[in-house]
Write a protein that binds this DNA or RNA. Structure first.
Lengths: 228, 228
DNA sequence: GTTCGATTCAAACGAACGTTCGAATAGGCT
DNA sequence: AGCCTATTCGAACGTTCGTTTGAATCGAAC
């Protein structure tokens, strides 16, 4: 927040503001003001607002995906060969949830939450260039985890596994984004700042969903059957 | 698309464009052009862009929440008293997924998808006024389903149930938003236009996650334990 | 001390934004 | 016909956006 170079300060400020307001609703003037930099610095260091957004994402996604794969590999070596579903899920979810752990700790307690929110928010953000950028970053990791889950869940169709990976990503992203709304809704019954509890809850839920029996193939609701 | 009054045409166009680009990234000029209306018509009929966004949401949320509660009540009456978790989940998920079913059918096959995307997108959208508006609309329905799930899941803590409702909402919203990205990623292995299959997959996943055992309370990861 | 590349700065650019206004138009009522 | 209300329209408002420019400033190398 104080002593870094301008480029990093801009990345930090952009990360925070994108987390709070989203890409389209955040202006370069907000960012440079928060970063204590000149307005022109963004275009000087990054070229454009779009490139800045990509840089903000890229700074976090790489390490996260690296740690995901590292954890997944560690699972394969520790056990005989087959990893438990919950462990695979945890290898996938923990890195983004614990993103703050790998980052400068002096930023205070709100830092991890802010990072998480940025990640959740921007992963549902719209601009097509961000969409394709994220898809590219996810392709390899997604395939690796799909294979691991398929091995841990014999009998499940590939389509079902892909669907459920998507559900897990959604649950994670939405939670990171709206956790304080949930805290407010439940009268602080759910505490989003307790990352350990959140991770456990999310892993338990996702593993349970992953392991659920596949629905029957054919089914028609009310058109042919007079059920009610 | 053709014969309705201006107010409805604007609502339809805004719904579609908000679904595609989000609130902040969609301009009133895009909306009125798509609607075949004059730019000033938005402010005449709705007062402001914010009020238009609220109207777009309100038109769909009311019927959806009504049908959710109606399905939930139907469950309570049909069975002895206790509904299955999957049935409660389906009562919660089917109305937004099948939103298009209650709407003008002549719009074509893409219509339902578009509606779904709008719903998924705007439920993760940022502007604070939309956030609070959505939270207000969700409060009652959320409480009702929390109670129903608590009855169907004896032994689960209220916090766990709320967390998991949140996870389910996230899985749904993210899927509605990014389904075509998933289709592309998996080489059309997952077909988002097959609403029946999507509903079944999502219900199975969510019910499995809901029913999963709660994680143990205390747990510390790597700080105290030297597990690698 | 001077030179030179890298960075910062104030100022402005044209474009697009949400909103407003007053005149024009349409359609029912007497 | 004439009137009244509701709606539509073109045009402009002031503001803010992302980006560009050219001069000022810095820091090391010589």
């Amino acid at each position: 927040m104080s002593g870094a170079d301008t480029k990093t300060e801009i990345l930090d400020a952009a990360e925070q503001l994108f987390a709070e307001f989203g890409y389209a609703a955040t202006s370069l003037r907000q960012i440079t003001t928060a970063a204590g930099a000149n307005l022109a610095a963004v275009n000087y260091h990054f070229g454009s607002k779009e490139e800045l957004a990509k840089a903000v994402l890229a700074r976090r996604i790489g390490p996260i995906n690296d740690e995901r794969l590292q954890r997944l590999d560690a699972l394969g070596k520790k056990l005989g060969k087959k990893a438990a579903v919950a462990d695979i899920i945890r290898a996938f979810l923990a890195p983004p949830l614990r993103l703050g752990g790998t980052v400068n700790r002096e930023e205070g307690h709100g830092y991890r939450q802010r990072l998480c929110r940025m990640f959740g928010r921007i992963s549902t953000e719209q601009p097509p260039f961000l969409r394709t950028f994220l898809a590219t970053q996810f392709r390899d990791v997604g395939s690796r985890f799909e294979r691991a889950l398929a091995a841990a869940l014999p009998g499940k169709s590939a389509a079902a596994i892909w669907w459920r990976i998507h559900f897990v990503v959604g649950a994670m992203a939405h939670t990171l984004q709206n956790s304080e709304a949930l805290a407010h809704l439940t009268g602080n019954l759910c505490d989003p700042s307790d990352v350990d509890a959140l991770e456990d809850q999310l892993v338990a839920f996702a593993a349970g969903g992953m392991s659920a029996a596949e629905p029957p193939k054919a089914r028609r609701k009310k058109s042919a059957l007079g059920a009610r």
